[in-house]
Design a protein around this nucleic acid. Structure first.
Lengths: 123, 123
DNA sequence: CCGCATCCAAACTGATACTG
DNA sequence: CAGTATCAGTTTGGATGCGG
């Protein structure tokens, strides 16, 4: 089966590879917070997004969760972490250029979810 | 923010609605098995997919999980359940026409996952 | 054959308190 | 301020056995 990658190239993959790819995607982007954080960082890319600020604006997340989620995203090269030279210390996070590649995924999920709501309402 | 729905219409939604839509999508399509089952039913749409057959072909899933996942999918109108008049009873499942709408989501996740693998390898 | 009930281990997550 | 540690409640998922 053929799929297009980010650069518009066609990638061939076996069925097993595709299954693994889906599992990867859901692991990296799934769950309650990951896409919310990515959306937030993208919508506020012009600002300095400190840990504190993110926690205030992504409603309901605990510091433990936010730490964990940001680290996961950093490991996957989707965000960068910068320690600021302030006192007391603060840390800011930004979406990476590569991180922008999750936006289409985001968009598809939004579209499907909105459509699904309507569908359930109609039936 | 504007998004296109399945029919090509533009849907407007508030940020909160978009968040809710993503959460819905991940709830309905996320997890280890849902998309695997949907892929399987789509790839074998011409056959009679009994519970037994699905369990044999979707590797590693327990009957408990398969029951639960299929019911969830049925509730969301993505698959239909048919009790066959055999002895002993067997039950078959098919992807619905509406269920086909998850295929683009599938495709985007496959694409992103494959691309991500390459990306991590390169860095 | 299909699905349910039960039991159980592991993972996830929230609350709270604490450290550098 | 950012992150860690601990505890407890919830959720998840596998294994097994039963009943229609």
């Amino acid at each position: 089966m053929a799929t297009m990658n980010i650069n518009g190239n066609v990638q061939e993959a076996t069925c097993e590879q595709e299954l693994a790819a889906i599992i990867d995607s859901l692991e990296i982007l799934g769950g309650k917070w990951k896409l919310r954080i990515m959306r937030h960082l993208n919508n506020h890319a012009a600002e300095t997004n400190t840990f504190k600020k993110i926690q205030r604006e992504v409603e309901g997340i605990s510091s433990k969760m936010l730490t964990k989620e940001l680290r996961d995203l950093e490991i996957n090269l989707l965000v960068t972490r910068t320690v600021l030279d302030t006192r007391p210390v603060s840390v800011s996070y930004s979406i990476t250029e590569y991180g922008l590649s999750v936006l289409p995924v985001n968009e598809v999920l939004v579209q499907w979810g909105l459509n699904h709501r309507q569908r359930l309402k109609l039936s």
